[in-house]
Write a protein that binds this DNA or RNA. Sequence first.
DNA 1: AAGTGGTCTAGACCACGAA
DNA 2: TCGTGGTCTAGACCACTTG
Lengths: 233, 233
Amino acid sequence: MAPQPIYLTVLQHLRKQVSQGRLKPGSRMPSENEIVRQFGISRMTANRVLSLLAAQGVVTRVAGVGTFVAEPRVHSHPLQVRSIADEIRARGHAHECRVLKLETTRAGAEWAGRCGVPAGARLHHSLLLHLENGVPLQLEDRHVNPKLVHDYLLHDFTRTTPHEVLMRAAPIQHAEHTVRAVFPDAALRKLLALGRSEACLLVRRRTWSDGQVVSAADLYHAGSRYELTGQFS
Amino acid sequence: MAPQPIYLTVLQHLRKQVSQGRLKPGSRMPSENEIVRQFGISRMTANRVLSLLAAQGVVTRVAGVGTFVAEPRVHSHPLQVRSIADEIRARGHAHECRVLKLETTRAGAEWAGRCGVPAGARLHHSLLLHLENGVPLQLEDRHVNPKLVHDYLLHDFTRTTPHEVLMRAAPIQHAEHTVRAVFPDAALRKLLALGRSEACLLVRRRTWSDGQVVSAADLYHAGSRYELTGQFS
DNA sequence: AAGTGGTCTAGACCACGAA
DNA sequence: TCGTGGTCTAGACCACTTG
């Protein structure tokens, strides 16, 4: 079934207890020795689980006292998880989506790493081009973990957005973004209708649900037509 | 002296090797067994050291192959007002700053608008190049409102950072960022030592204190060596 | 005194990649 | 085949806090 390390199994089990509210902030986590007895593992492995949870900010550990569920962290969201379609419609412009690819693939090394699945595992893959008033704005290259969203490919993405589909299937609890400037290759330049001297803004987004990566996406934007903004006080 | 755990001693030793450039990006780290022999510790402890370095992004581990020094890549939070020097030093790398320009100018239309002063008003102007371990990372083109920070130009920016100067003079209460990808011109390409097919990540930042714009800055980064990251839950 | 987390050891088996 | 990292065990000693 799931040939995964013991410590991961235990870790996900405890994470779920916390995320589902059965273990509330400030309450006591099972101690290392309790985990040893409960799961029949060695103390080193139990220690690994709790130390990892501490490193992830899920729990707080106090030597001589115990391990406790951390208070939910205050988050100022630098980059909101918002679909490009919403942004376009919020501007009162017309959004259009062209489906370039829709398939199930085997994960190569890179996408396997980003999606947290073994190389060779199946991944749903969609390649969508979003247009604002008929002008290409974003190329969305997305991989989705089929174990979490099995029917991902069955949707009509000209009418709904991946964002909506994912939110229904697996509520996003955590997101990670990295933003970089890249030099477009010929194919990308053509798809996004880029000028000769135009760079490309790449937003890489990963979203998690219950500690597992739901989806990883590369969002390419025309440098001259798209920018991220943020306020902070 | 310093009764600290063995793994910390070894970890700091290896970190220093990396930050001082004796172990360069892409080069091979000592394997777990080599560390075992070199420091006379158990393999579990050696594994802990390298795993921690991997979690910190200092190295990359590949099962069956080895452990390698990670490519330097600065991670930063888009909305956080943090000086590039702090980011570099937080990674344990050497920060160096070259002062390219330091002057008082008359505000043109663009900078006047961004700084909220009438066109033709005086503005302090600095052009600084920040280097990480000797490699250009950020070109900082900054204008400062002299009414709020009159002595801005009198500082030695090879020893202190504009961020520190501004924070002392006028505590930042609000910030605005916009992020975009731009195509570098020849001058910028030379200053940042950009490759032929390398884009540029431009962060435009404005900071306010008491409702007035303190400073407006254009921060240009090498696309291959800099990225913004953000997390939120 | 009992329980907690922090650290460390000396083994072990495995999958993987390179030679 | 050999070295690599990934994982796991069954002990151990310590400093610390709580009762």
